[in-house]
Every structure is written in structure tokens, then in C-alpha cells.
């Protein structure tokens, strides 16, 4: 299943935050969205998954999602959004509740996703016992449990320290290499974008428009920390964003 954004525009009252966004999200690819703070990248992600309605334009699903996909558009949030009163296992089984699965089937799904994210030993732990990185792994395995057609990732690694971030980038690359998934990945971190994105969409500052789309052909598994060609891409992206970011930084917040 592909996604297509047709002429999306969005405003809060009189404040226009986004304008004329046309974008294709092809199946099996990771599309990163970067942009200066306040350019509406998280809003765009909420529009794509139907958590918010665009003022104009529409988001189209092209083709049917795979029949075994329970929740085609699935989010991973920056703050993990784990229920603190449920164990790791309980957090994952909760979201399977409303799909009419048998207990045995639900159990099988939970243990499958836990082993794919190497969390099997932690399945009885409460979120308060886990580090930030482990919490996000739980959130990732919860998202995998519903077998999404498109993963919508809202700054998933931004709340983590840089070492943990590096580990989780590797995890995501491994997951994708074993079984390619479609994802829209919003981030403000250009390094994450060049490591994980097949294409990188640069948004301008408010009202957000697509400034440029940068493609990276190098396979995900071959990308590493400090690769010269990725560094060049990252520098290129930074040059595209630099002035916008500076202007955005100096804007008075008046929302």
C-alpha cells in the first residue's frame, strides 16, 4: 500500500501552518521529514495517520493494505506513550484487544514481536523499570504487533541519549533489512535522516512547504556512523535548512 498526500494545507484559526504539500510515500521505503522547529512536521504526521483533519487537501491510500495488517497506519511516539500501569506484555496485548483475536493468537503475536525486538526477558517489567531506550523498543514492538502497512514515527529517538540512539538506529535498520516496512519518519536530527531515509523531505519554515526532496540510494545496511558520503548529504541538508532554522529560531512565538 502506498500513501499519497494531495495538496495538503492546514491552519489553526488564522495561522497557516502548512501549504500545498504533495508527496508520495512508496511501499517498502522510509521517507524522512526534516525541517526547522515549528514547520509543522509533527502536524503533518498526525494528518497522515488521521489523528487530525487537514483544512484542505487529502491523504490517499493507494492500493489495499495487506490482509493481515490489523492497524494499517501505526504511530510510534516521541514520549513512548506506554501505559505505566501495564507490563511490557500488557502494553502490547492491550492494543490487540479490539481485533477479535483468540487468546492463543494474541499470545503468539506478543511473543513474536518481543523476540524480534529482543525484549522477551523483560516481558513482565513495568515501564518505570525500563530505560528510555528499552521503553522505545517496547513501543516499536507494540507497533509491529499490529503489522502496520505504514509506520508513522514522530521523532522516535529524540528523547534518548546519543549512544542509545545509535543502538536503536541499528535495531531499526536490522528490522527493515529482515522485513522491509514503509515508514514516515519525522525528525529534527539530520544524522538520523541520512542513516534511515530512502528519501528525505526538507520542509521550509511556517507555513510549511516542501523545499526539496533528497534521495539516498545507498542501502540502509551499508550506511554507518561517519560515512563520508552520508556526511556530505547531511551537510547538504544543513545548508538547505540553515537560514530557515535561524529565522525560525528568532521568531516570536505567538500561537
Amino acid at each position: 500500500m502506498d500513501l499519497r498526500l494531495e495538496n495538503i494545507g492546514h491552519s489553526y484559526g488564522t495561522l497557516e501552518v502548512m501549504q500545498g504539500i504533495n508527496l508520495d510515500i512508496p511501499a517498502g521505503k522510509i521517507v524522512c521529514i526534516v525541517g526547522p522547529s515549528g514547520c509543522g512536521k509533527s502536524t503533518l504526521l498526525r494528518l497522515i495517520g488521521g489523528l487530525e483533519e487537514p483544512t484542505i487537501g487529502r491523504v490517499v491510500q493507494v492500493g489495499e493494505p495487506p490482509s493481515d495488517s490489523l492497524n494499517p497506519l501505526t504511530y510510534i511516539f516521541q514520549d513512548f506513550a506506554l501505559l505505566p500501569w501495564r507490563t511490557v506484555e500488557g502494553n502490547i496485548s492491550l492494543i490487540l484487544k479490539d481485533y477479535g483475536l483468540s487468546d492463543a493468537k494474541a499470545k503468539a503475536i506478543v511473543s513474536d514481536v518481543l523476540s524480534r525486538t529482543k525484549l522477551t526477558d523483560f516481558r513482565k517489567a513495568l515501564p518505570k523499570q525500563l530505560s528510555g531506550g528499552m521503553k522505545q523498543r517496547v513501543a516499536i514492538s507494540r507497533a509491529l504487533a499490529v503489522n502496520p502497512a505504514v509506520m508513522l514515527m514522530d521523532e522516535p529517538l529524540s528523547a534518548l541519549d546519543s549512544q542509545t540512539r545509535e543502538l536503536l538506529i541499528d535495531d531499526l535498520v536490522n528490522l527493515w533489512t529482515r522485513k522491509p516496512f514503509t515508514a514516515v519518519y519525522v525528525t529534527h536530527n539530520l544524522n538520523e535522516a541520512v542513516r534511515l531515509g530512502h528519501s528525505i523531505v526538507v520542509l521550509s519554515r511556517r507555513p510549511g512547504k516542501i523545499r526539496k526532496i533528497v534521495e539516498i540510494v545507498k542501502p540502509l545496511a551499508e550506511r554507518g556512523l561517519g560515512d563520508a558520503d552520508l556526511d556530505a548529504k547531511q551537510k547538504h541538508l544543513w545548508n538547505l535548512m540553515r537560514e530557515e532554522a535561524m529565522a525560525a529560531d528568532q521568531e516570536l512565538i505567538n500561537v
Binding site: 495517520g49 489523528l51 492497524n71 497506519l73 501505526t74 504511530y75 511516539f77 514520549d79 506513550a81 501505559l83 492491550l94 492494543i95 484487544k97 479490539d98 499490529v146
Partner: peptide, 21 residues
Amino acid sequence: RSLIRMGQSFSLSWSTIVSKI
């Protein structure tokens, strides 16, 4: 609110969101 958003994003029913979240 972010937990409720999470529930909605997984298409949980209203009654599940109320009783479990």
C-alpha cells in the same frame, strides 16, 4: 492526553480507551 491519542492511533474502541486508559 498522549496516552489517549495512543489508544486512538491503534484504533481502540471508545469503551476500551475509557476502561483501560
